[in-house]
Each structure stands twice: as C-alpha cells, then as structure tokens.
Design a protein around this nucleic acid. Structure first.
Lengths: 232, 232
DNA sequence: CGCCTGAAAAATGTCGACAGTTGTTGCGAC
DNA sequence: GTCGCAACAACTGTCGACATTTTTCAGGCG
C-alpha cells in the first residue's frame, strides 16, 4: 500500500511506527495478534527501547490496545467497534462540515472541487465504477482540515481514519463507494460554497450515516452467512 | 485535587503518569512549560525509561505535545484551543446523548436522577450556589458511558475531559455552572427517559453550546481587559 | 553594537543487561 | 486420565551508559 502519511522524523521509533502502522492496516499483522517486543526488536534489528515508543505511538492511533504486564495486541475490528467508529465519525465530521462552511478559504473550496471533478471524470471514464479509495480520503481530509479545528482534525485524521483505512483495506466491500457518494460529496461542497453550516452539517451527517448503514447491512449479511466462522 | 482517576497499575510509569497528569491539570506544571526527562527523572528518582513512557501516556491524553528531538511541552490552553475543544465536545456529547437515549439501562438512568437530585438539593441548601465541579463530571461521565460507544467514550473521557478539567481548574469562572445547567441536565435526562434520541441530542447540544458561549464571553472579556498581558 | 561561528553543556535517542512477572510444560499425586 | 504444583522459559519493566542532536554562550569578526 502507499504510505498513509510519510511521517518521517529521522528517529528509529518513528520509522518503525510507520512500518508497523502500515502492516497493521493491511492486515499483514493480523487483528487481535500480539505484538511481542522481543520478537519485533529482533526482526527490525533494534533494541526494545524504540520499539516500545513505536507501540505507544500505535496505541495513540487506536491501532493497538496495551495491557500492562501483558503487552500489546492489534485492535480487533468487531462489527460493534466498526459501527461505533462510524457513529463517532458522523458526529465529528458533520460538525467539521459545519465549521468548514464558515472557515474554509476559497482556495480550499477549489481544492474540493478539483477532487470531486476528478472523481466524476473517473466515473464517466469507467462507467459506473467506484470512487478510488485514495480520492475519497483526499476529499474527507481536505474537508476536515478546512474546519480549522485542531481537536476535531486530530480525532479524525490521527485516530479514526487509520481505523477506517484498516477496515476498508481488509474488507473489500467497504471500499465500494457508489455514485451516491459522489452526489453526496457534491452536496456537501455546495453547502460549503453557500456558507451554510446547517446544510453542510446535515448533508455530511447523512453521507456518513448512509455509509454506516451500508456497512451494517454487509456485516449483518456476512454474519448470518458465515455463522460461527469466528477467528481465533 | 482529588485524583482524577485512580488508574493504578503497579508499574512506575503509570504512577508517574498519574502524578504528572494531576500536576498539569492543577497548573503546578505551567502551561507551555517544557517537561525535561533528565530533570523529572532526578525528581522522581527513577530512570528515564518509565518517564518516557509516562510522557507518551500524557501525550495520549492530549495534555502534552511531543516534538521529536526537542521534547515534551505542556499544552497551552489558548482561547482558540478551548473553543475548539468545546466544539468537538458538542459534536461528541450530543451524539452520546442520542445513543444513551437508546442504549442506557434504567439502572443508569436512575443514577443520572440521583446525581441531578443531589445537585438540586445542593442548590436549595446553598441558595443560588453553583453545581460542584465533581458532581458535574459525574453527570457527564455517566451520560457518556450510557451511550455504550467505546470510541466516543474514549475520545471524551480519555482526552477531552482532561483538558476541560485542566481549563476549569485554572480558570475559576469556568466552574460556575448556574441553575441553568441543572435545568439543562434535567432536560437531557427527561429526553433519555422518553427514549427520544433526537430530543436528547438537541438538548445536550444546546447545553454544551451554552457553556461554550459563556466561556467565550468570559475569555473575550479577559482578553480585552488584560490587553497584552501575555504569558512567556 | 550586532551577528556569525564554534566549542561546551545539556538534552534526547538508542542500546544491552538485569529484575520481576506471566505463561508454559512436564512431572507426580489422586 | 485429570488435576495441581513446581521448575523453566519467555516476556515485560526498569536501569545505567553511550551516541547523537540540540541548545547555550562566549569569542571574534564585520
């Protein structure tokens, strides 16, 4: 996968953080599996110090859970957790859209246009295809940054989006943004251009709620189909 | 101050985390000041290892910002950041209230009643007094936990509330919840009892928005009064 | 007088080793 | 054969020291 964010500082721990982050997102390191400091230190050929730092960083991204005296485990994206994530995202991103309607610069709005126009072109060129995941991330990243709220930005970009990326990467169906998504993106940009926070909030809220509902249907279908095909 | 949360594991780093956390919240360690690993390690008479862990933990609570190769600094609660915090809180807590209306057990609703009844009694006994800060925390903690959403709960209880507690502790006026707050608490509980997510969401949203507005007025008043009385 | 330079001081980054805890395994008793 | 206990192995927690980077500040140049 393309690096989520280049995030380089020249420290070993930050490099390991990025490497592990991507390995977790792609599923190369399985959900629920344990991250052994000793083993990883051998693998990366570094001491355990930087590794502990990296694990703490991943904990800050919500990608792992840390239990004292026991170690770190990769988060398990249960159906409940995924739906919780989308509820939280709905709350934060609808507020972000409202704030963006007030605070976004016209230059940033242009950027939103550029992104959704590219999405539209891509759909015309590949009739009825899906929006590329990267392009969808671009749209939401730009929207969130336009809100000019560091707390919301941090919660979404540094925490929830990693989990969502992980979920999408490991569940093909979750990447299938239809033409509905593009339409909803257009509505959000329209509301922001009107400088109408209420409308922007409602349209963004619905956009996320629709995505959540689609995911819930798919997860329920998988559940009833697979029955007891639980993972260890 | 009373310990925010006893959070004991028998590890040194967790104890130091709790101690530093409280020192930052009370302002004993000033906003914007640097946390020197070397110095703190001497003060606590431990090696730098556990201290680095503690600093990472505090970073996870948003109480400090960490800059590679430079170290950790206590967060500075600028007017902009405080208002951002309350906007994020409005988004998350209104959603929490909506979810609580659906998911809260009757036992938990009873707990909410117990809390606001105590608040009412306290106000009658000390005519027109303020709601004690601890009691206000109790109310919101119970509400948020009742939403049964681990992501929202984590964002509020493990991050935003520490910052809010810090702001309140260091700004006396921010603690002055009037009888309005009690009334709004009652409205929220009422909506939850009705199992009406929409009403719960709106009432909670207004409650936070009112608090935010009151704080904004006070901060603006301080700003124009103090002029250039900036801190180093 | 101010600015640049560079060496000294201090701080952060990393390492390897030891201590204490947790989890496992195999033996023995019932 | 099963349960419980003990020795062992593996892992996390902590430490002190070394390496590298940043900061400080005194000296000299313009």
């Amino acid at each position: 996968m393309s690096k989520t964010q280049e995030s380089f500082a020249s420290t070993i721990s930050s490099e390991i953080t990025a490497t592990l982050r991507d390995a977790i997102i792609t599923g190369e390191i399985a959900q629920g599996s344990k991250l052994s400091e000793t083993k990883l230190a051998r693998d990366f050929d570094v001491s355990r110090g930087p590794l502990r730092e990296a694990i703490r960083n991943l904990e800050g991204m919500s990608l792992i859970a840390y239990i004292p005296q026991q170690g770190a485990r990769v988060v398990t994206l249960s159906k409940e957790l995924v739906l919780d994530i989308y509820d939280a995202r709905e709350a934060l991103e609808s507020k972000a859209a409202a704030l963006a309607a007030t605070n976004m610069s016209s230059r940033e709005i242009d950027e939103l246009h550029r992104i959704i126009d590219a999405q539209g072109k891509h759909m015309r060129d590949n009739s009825n295809a899906y929006i590329p995941a990267e392009s969808d991330y671009d749209f939401h990243n730009t929207l969130v940054r336009g809100a000019k709220n560091k707390v919301i930005e941090n919660a979404l970009l540094q925490r929830l989006y990693y989990l969502i990326k992980m979920f999408r990467y490991q569940n093909d169906f979750a990447n299938k943004s239809t033409s509905n998504s593009l339409l909803e993106h257009r509505q959000i940009v329209y509301a922001i251009e009107l400088r109408d926070p209420e409308l922007a909030s409602v349209t963004a809220k619905r956009h996320i709620a629709h995505t959540r509902a689609r995911i819930m249907r798919r997860l329920n279908a998988l559940n009833s189909a697979n029955g007891s095909k639980a993972n260890n």
